[in-house]
Amino acid sequence: MKPARFDYYDPRTLAEAVAIRQEHGDESTVLAGGQSLMPMMNMRLARPVVVVDVNRVADSAYVRDWNGGVAIGMTTRQRMLMQHPLLTARVPLLGEAAQYIGHPQIRSRGTVCGSLAHADPAAELPTVAVALDAQLVAAGPHGQRLIAAADFFVDVYTTSLKPDEVLTEVRFPVLPADMVWSFLEVSRRHGDFAMVGAVTGIAVDQARNVITGARLVFCGVGATPRRVVEAENALLGQAPGEAAFAAAAALVSQGVDPHNDLHASVAYRRSVAGTLTKRGLAQALATLAA
């Protein structure tokens, strides 16, 4: 299980990386953390002609303020999501989700942008990016292109990045002040790929005891992160609690369109999506009382 032959570049600047992508287009693949790509290359499921290793691109492993939110650089490792003070303070949901990503060794090498660009349907970070309205920054021969997370994930392992582009940054805006969040996942064993994962967000007008905002986004139930707007809308105006959450969960179960595979059936994924909706909303709500 060794990779097929390839030509290897390790550019030191973003401009060099883009130039290589421009020259080789879809015969090239960007290598960042390698925690998803290298297994595929070892098994020869991926056979890039050209590997563009971006780990040595200068000044790419940053976490910095972005208009009160956070910008995360191209080679920032996933373990930073649980450790960096800007992230734990401003976007703790990312750290919660990251705990479900594989194992510590994977989080030491795996990158945030790499996970987003790889776009595995079961991946946690794309789901959080969609839920929090993240902005992706792509660098190409014609300069920078900003892509909304909702438009970024197109299909299994497919994003709207062009073959001559490199994903250089992901930006998380300031979160809505009244929203509380939870991330939950079910997998066969600790650290396995998600069968279903759920980001739930809820905002409550506590004086009137009424839900004023909701976000429900799932991984593992389709080719890309699935936001279930109909369930979100059903929560608005309702009193927060079991009845409203159960109704939303039913809409989620019906609304998602998962596939059968070795790990879980369609019926099971629908059921888990509903259960995680209820649990996630209850968990998020409980943080308001605390």
Partner: peptide
């Protein structure tokens, strides 16, 4: 598993050139 610059890493999914 090895330590790479002080952090554990899976050496089967790293390239020697890295």
């Amino acid at each position: 598993t090895i330590l790479f610059n002080g952090e554990t890493a899976r050496s089967c999914i790293m390239l020697a050139v890295q």
